[in-house]
Nucleic acid binder design. Structure first.
Lengths: 157, 157
DNA sequence: TTGTTAATGAAAATCATTTTCAATTTAAGG
DNA sequence: CCTTAAATTGAAAATGATTTTCATTAACAA
């Protein structure tokens, strides 16, 4: 097995084990799918993608693993208002590609955007600091979502 | 009936009727509760509050009305990650008091904050304009939520 | 008042997510 | 490699918020 490969699988092993979790085949399969997938997957999406390579897995384990991973901050759990949660990998070994979401309330399409992220990040850092102090919160995370109608849906109206 | 009272009930009548909806007793009761309540109510919270004054009402109608109202932008539907939606009145006759949320992932407590709102609003206006143009979205709305642990929950850990 | 149609409540249906529980797998120690 | 305790699993049942169905009622234009 080529050396270059070892790091690829290695880092989440440490993260899980370090927190007292075991790295099982199911979890590995899920992490594999999440890390490769672009975009926002529902539990069932993930199930579908994991199943071919690891048919043994059940939906229940997907949910359980997703819970663990989002508890560890390795995965973000998102809500776009359509009644099912979406999950996305928080960051790869190469680092985070921070982005936010633009949600069409007509067709539920979701656009990831990274525009204006720099200014945003700057402001949010400040805000976060201020809120932390004022309300005694230890802030771990934030979301920003814009809602509106995409071009197609706006026309239909 | 004192003149001063007429405006109080009047403005949402117009809004609903103007969009082809009827102003029923149930809807009025719900609007009444929403407009007076501080904070974020679940459908069931609203049911509880409406029931004493209007026992005839069913939970189903609460959901249906809430749907209509959020469709009209009179109510915001919020998700704090605990599996039940919360609703808050978008603005009173006196005008909006724009705020965002700080959610404790330990105990689900939610703090409304208005700090830094001015800078935020400024930045978001810009961002909104840019995104609108770039992605062809007609943006109606946005949310910002910070997640973390409140003081009490941080200690427990 | 009357007719048309939207709106309603109750009960049943949905559907994503959780829980239960017995069987299996992991990883640490011999 | 083998054993063992505890974590993890899958299947099936349970949960619980939200929706749908459908027959009845209420709103309001004429």
């Amino acid at each position: 097995m080529p050396k270059g490969n070892c790091r690829g699988n290695g880092w989440w092993h440490g993260k899980l084990r370090g927190c007292g979790y075991r790295l099982t085949m199911g979890r590995e399969a899920i992490l594999d799918v999440l890390s490769k997938a672009e975009g926002h997957l529902s539990a069932e999406d993930i199930y579908m993608k994991v199943h071919p390579g690891y048919p043994h897995i059940g939906l229940t384990s997907i949910y359980r693993t997703l819970d663990v991973l989002s508890g560890l901050g390795m995965v973000y759990k998102l809500d776009f208002g359509d009644g099912r949660a979406r999950y996305e990998f928080a960051e790869g070994p190469k680092g985070a590609h921070h982005h936010h979401h633009l949600v069409c309330t007509g067709c539920n399409k979701v656009v990831d955007y990274t525009d204006f992220i720099d200014e945003e990040v700057e402001l949010l850092r400040e805000t976060e600091k201020g809120l932390s102090k004022k309300y005694g919160f230890k802030i771990a995370n934030h979301i920003i979502q814009f809602y509106g109608l995409c071009e197609a849906c706006a026309k239909k109206k």
